[in-house]
Computed example of a mutant assay.
Amino acid sequence: MKIITSRAFNQDVSQAKRAARIEPVFVTDRGRPTHVLMSVETYRRLIGQTETIVDLLAMPGLPAVDLPPIDLEGARQPETWDRRSEP
């Protein structure tokens, strides 16, 4: 467990982030711990999360659905300005 002061944290956030990849970093204010900096992987293990947001958005296991193609030209309103037409 690494402990740094809030002043040291503010002066070199990158160093604190590098240290947090290895172990949680406790940030102190006037000698008392106020915050903990840790990697996302450590946090996920701590809360028991096994899936990432990308895994959840992928929605594995859903059946594939064949959707009909969308006719974008047919969906155009007739009064829509067409920049391709000549004046």
Rank of each mutant, 00 (worst) to 15 (best):
Thr28Asn: 01
Arg30Ile: 12
Asp71Trp: 02
Ala64Tyr: 11
Arg21Asn: 12
Asp82Cys: 02
Val25Ile: 01
Pro24Asn: 05
Thr80Pro: 00
Asp66Gln: 15
Pro87Ile: 13
Arg7Pro: 00
Ile22His: 09
Ile3Ala: 03
Pro24His: 04
Gly74Ala: 09
Pro60Thr: 05
Asp71Gln: 03
Glu86Trp: 08
Leu56Pro: 00
Phe26Asn: 05
Arg7Val: 09
Lys17Asn: 10
Ala16Thr: 07
Lys2Thr: 14
Asp29Ser: 12
Trp81Pro: 03
Gln49Ile: 04
Glu79Tyr: 13
Gln11Thr: 05
Asp12Pro: 04
Glu79Ile: 09
Leu72His: 11
Pro33Leu: 03
Thr50Trp: 11
Ile70Lys: 08
Arg44Glu: 10
Gln49His: 06
Pro63Glu: 10
Met1Ile: 08
Glu73Lys: 07
Gln11Asn: 14
Thr5Val: 01
Val25Gly: 00
Leu62Ala: 15
Tyr43Trp: 14
Arg44Gln: 10
Arg45Pro: 00
His35Met: 11
Pro63Ser: 11
Glu79Ser: 15
Pro63Cys: 05
Pro69Phe: 13
Glu41Thr: 12
Ala16Pro: 02
Ile3Glu: 11
Pro63Trp: 06
Asn10Lys: 13
Pro60Val: 02
Asp71Arg: 06
Ala16Asp: 01
Pro33Lys: 06
Arg83Thr: 03
Asn10Glu: 14
Ala16Arg: 02
His35Trp: 07
Arg32Met: 07
Ile47Ser: 03
Ser85Tyr: 03
Ile22Asn: 08
Asp29Ala: 08
Gln49Thr: 05
